[in-house]
Design a protein around this nucleic acid. Structure first.
Length: 306
RNA sequence: GCCGAGAUAGCUCAGUGGUAGAGCGCGGCCCUGAAAAGGCCGGCGUGGGGGGUCCGAUUCCCUCUCUCGGCA
């Protein structure tokens, strides 16, 4: 029996994944499942460049605007949500087309996640207190004692990973370096195909800069100032644009400075995304040139599928 | 035209008589429950052109060119 198929479309921010995805989805009877850590938030439409209502009418999109910005969301929740949606889609005879640029979510979805140790707020609070009191070197030394293998992999300054590794140990009594070997990917059960979009760096950066300009034209300031009136979760507050505009609202710099910062941070983000995806040998890369329309790019992918 | 200041990495600038640094940008990388986050690594650049002093000049002197500020 043929395995069910899941198709992935990844690539850096601003390259035009959304439009290509819609065109491709129509060709292959697919529905789109977002793979984006920020587009899951409601009230953050412009800032995260979510697909427009018009686009969403053409093809059904999943996991866009599913939670309030006050709430935390993470990779484990994401994986669970996606697998549920995929089951539903298969029942309807639809193909899931997973589209987005969040490398961690992609990886945890496609390669699996060790499930022994969910986040533990109490343990984390304790570790953060120790961090403040005794410094990162102390925590790193502790990690080296209980899990030498993990400590070799984690840089002494990478406090977040040190804390996570310690949290896992305190919670389960097992080393994260051991647990991490235990993951089951999607490939066992499904037929996986991954496509990546890329283009010249200069062209990409150009597109990113322009997209930020468009965000401002479409009312980014209004959207974000509304957000500042409510509580923002730690995760939601990480969206590029929040911090940068906060600085402007606080009078630290001008609006055009804020725009420049958003553009710069988006470029840096795109660069990190490319680093992440570049090493994944499953990805079939599609290089986009300046004159190609989303439909033409979708056609290229479609040809590779059949 | 005169007076003054300057000309050093893509940008802003620091510094030194023994052939140069920093921040930012830019490039590369890491990534398993905050990930649009967090962390790591990377600087040979005719030191504006020419001449002089000196064992040796980016650093001192002269001159030319250009830029900026002030005065006319």
């Amino acid at each position: 029996m043929l395995k069910k198929e899941i198709i992935f479309l990844v690539g850096p921010t601003g390259i035009g994944k959304s439009a290509v995805a819609i065109s491709l989805a129509k060709k292959i009877n697919a529905e789109i499942v977002s793979c984006d850590s920020m587009q899951v938030y409601r009230k953050m439409d412009i800032i995260t460049s979510k697909a427009t209502p018009f686009q969403r009418k053409k093809v059904k999109h999943h996991l866009l605007g599913i939670i309030d910005p006050a709430k935390e969301y993470d990779a484990a929740k994401y994986r669970k949500d996606v697998l549920l949606i995929c089951d539903k889609l298969f029942l309807k005879g639809k193909t899931p087309l997973v589209v987005g640029g969040t490398g961690l979510y992609y990886s945890i979805l496609i390669d699996g996640l060790f499930s022994a140790a969910p986040q533990d707020k109490k343990i984390r609070a304790k570790l953060n207190k120790q961090l403040a009191l005794k410094g990162s070197a102390y925590l790193y030394k502790k990690l080296a004692e209980i899990d030498p293998q993990a400590s070799k992999k984690i840089h002494p300054n990478d406090v977040r990973r040190i804390i996570r590794a310690l949290e896992v140990y305190l919670k389960t009594g097992k080393q994260i370096s051991v647990l991490q070997k235990n993951r089951i990917g999607l490939g066992r059960e499904y037929e996986i195909k991954v496509f990546g979009l890329n283009t010249d760096r200069e062209f990409l950066y150009d597109k990113i800069n322009q997209r930020v300009d468009k965000m401002f034209d479409s009312g980014l300031i209004n959207e974000v100032s509304r957000l500042f009136k409510q509580k923002l979760s730690k995760t939601a507050a990480c969206a590029i644009g929040i911090r940068q505009l906060k600085g402007y609202f606080d009078g630290l710099y001008s609006l055009s400075d804020a725009r420049g910062l958003i553009q710069r941070d988006s470029r840096h983000y795109a660069k990190r995304q490319l680093t992440w995806f570049r090493k994944d040998k499953r990805i079939q890369w599609i290089n986009i040139n300046k004159k190609e329309s989303p439909a033409q790019v979708a056609l290229k992918i479609w040809k590779k599928l059949s």
